[in-house]
């Protein structure tokens, strides 16, 4: 049940998907894997939307060169607070109605089952394909939807993986792309892609609209191009 305060807080979006939808958001637990350029807008907007429990996963501490895009981390967090802790501090002050759980560490074959216990949706905000494949396998084993996003420079891509319904991530991107150090990236690119991922999560949970299932959205901000490639 939503409180009077929650009904008021979420009024403008309840007008989209109803009180039912808002209650579904409140009951949901979403894992944001990677709390960097994509994870910042994803976690921020999911907190704003009233997702009941957010699980933030990252092993790093913010660095100065992260701050052009990782907007949940501030100067005071540099080399000090691990990213999930840094993000939790702000998100709890932003929305005291939600729970923010953290895991400071890297997801591995051995810990993924335990770390992602009870998660309804996984959001891929990672910077490497090795861990993405691990998430992909886990999502398929558990039948949990996975919202994939990735960015570089001024372009990026989003697709939503639904086990049993869509291709898996490894089928779409079969060649493990090498992790690039010092990847060029504009904050606004991560903002656009991450915000679309957050909207995908809200649609998955509330059932409103249609998600990017078997559709790869490719955005190139340098040339203002938005393209959808059908994946089947």
């Amino acid at each position: 049940m939503l409180s009077e305060r929650e009904l008021e807080r979420y009024d403008r979006q309840i007008r989209i998907f109803g009180v039912d939808g808002q209650e579904k958001l409140k009951k949901a637990k979403v894992a944001v894997v990677g709390v960097g350029g994509l994870g910042s807008p994803v976690a921020y907007y999911l907190a704003a939307a009233g997702v009941g429990t957010l699980l933030l996963i990252d092993e790093q501490k913010p660095e100065l060169s992260n701050l052009n895009r990782q907007i949940l981390h501030w100067e005071e967090d540099i080399d000090k607070n691990p990213k999930p802790i840094s993000a939790k501090w702000k998100l709890e002050r932003f929305n005291s109605d939600i729970k923010v759980e953290t895991f400071v560490g890297k997801l591995t074959k051995d810990n993924i089952k335990e770390v992602l216990t009870g998660v309804d949706v996984v959001v891929d905000c990672l910077d490497n394909f090795e861990t993405r494949y691990l998430l992909d396998e886990f999502a398929h084993k558990r039948g949990i939807p996975l919202v994939h996003g990735a960015v570089e420079g001024m372009f990026g891509q989003v697709t939503t993986i639904i086990p049993g319904k869509t291709k898996c991530l490894r089928e779409i991107f079969p060649k493990p792309l090498k992790k690039k150090e010092n990847l060029p990236i504009l904050g606004a690119t991560a903002g656009v892609i991450g915000t679309i991922q957050a909207a995908e999560v809200v649609k998955l949970i509330t059932g409103y609209g249609e998600v990017l299932a078997n559709k790869l959205l490719i955005i190139d901000l340098a040339y203002g191009s938005f393209e959808i490639v059908e994946l089947v």
């Binding site: 990677g34 960097g36 350029g37 910077d127 990735a150 372009f155 792309l177 690039k180």
Partner: peptide, 10 residues
């Protein structure tokens, strides 16, 4: 036919 580079960063 369209060619596009997959992104990998986050």
């Amino acid at each position: 036919v369209a060619l596009f580079p997959p992104a990998s960063g986050g």
